[in-house]
């Protein structure tokens, strides 16, 4: 299958105090249409740097980023982007926050609301459109933030630790909720997380980054059938993969791309 996103030889250097510091070593990624791909790695391995580069917010020092074969280096607005903080504007209602992306693109409000309303009803925000973000729980706010990203209508969605600030139970609910949305919309998802369980549970492919300066040390495909259930997270193959990933992250060294089912 043709690659939806291709990252070729992308690296990032900074200059600080006259010294050149490498934030991310040359990275190559190729992600197929409709896949759910996670990136895990220790803090400061350049995961967020990579996301900012793909989102066009910072230019890479070397390399190219292609989406559908088109160079998108330095071009914003090509991918949907969501951060750990929900980044809802506190003076806007949930509905007005969700349609923000469409508003920026100049979609008339009436049309935007008509598109947002059924999604809100369907994905757990029914009746919350008129509320302000401060009145909602963390999980609900993340739902709103994700719907905003979704309604921005890009084929590619970058999620930078979206559930990192949530408690364990809400997190599990949100993971299932995210999978449901992903099954419905079949977007290509790039997901950054610290949580190995989360990465295995959600992903088709997992890229493992090394510590600073970051580089990819392994690519793993998870063949667990979908839809997945919480029982799968205690299955033997899940545990085996988890042990393997823990090994890699704690400096188990480099190895060629593995394939575990």
């Amino acid at each position: 299958m043709k690659a939806k996103i291709e990252i070729a030889g992308v690296s990032k250097w900074f200059r600080r105090d006259g010294q050149e510091i490498i934030a991310m070593q040359e990275t190559n990624l190729s992600i197929e249409q409709g896949r759910f791909v996670s990136i895990i790695g220790p803090s400061g391995c350049g995961k967020s740097t990579l996301f900012n580069i793909i989102a066009g917010l910072i230019p890479p020092s070397t390399g190219r980023v292609l989406a559908d074969g088109e160079d998108i280096v330095g071009k914003t607005g090509y991918v949907g982007y969501m951060l750990q903080k929900d980044m809802l504007l506190p003076w806007r209602t949930i509905l007005d926050n969700i349609i923000l992306g469409m508003e920026i693109r100049g979609v008339p409000r009436k049309e935007a609301v008509a598109r947002a309303q059924p999604l809100m009803d369907r994905y757990g925000l029914k009746g919350f459109g008129g509320h302000y973000p401060a009145e909602l729980s963390g999980g609900m706010r993340q739902r709103a933030a994700l719907l905003r990203t979704l309604l921005y209508d890009r084929d590619i969605i970058l999620l930078d630790e979206p559930f990192g600030a949530l408690d364990a139970q809400t997190r599990l609910t949100m993971q299932n909720w995210l999978l449901e949305i992903w099954e419905d919309f079949r977007k290509t998802v790039l997901f950054v997380t610290h949580d190995i369980d989360e990465a295995i549970y959600l992903s088709d492919d997992i890229y493992v980054f090394s510590g600073r300066p970051g580089r990819i040390i392994s690519k793993i495909s998870v063949d667990m059938p979908r839809p997945r259930h919480k029982e799968d997270t205690v299955s033997a193959s899940f545990m085996e993969l988890k042990a393997h990933l823990l090994d890699l992250l704690s400096g188990g060294g480099e190895e060629p791309a593995a394939h575990i089912s």
Binding site: N52, A55, L57, V79, L83
Partner: peptide, 9 residues
């Protein structure tokens, strides 16, 4: 917040 706005184009 600014970053998010730019990412929304």
């Amino acid at each position: 917040m600014e970053k998010l706005m730019y990412s929304l184009g």
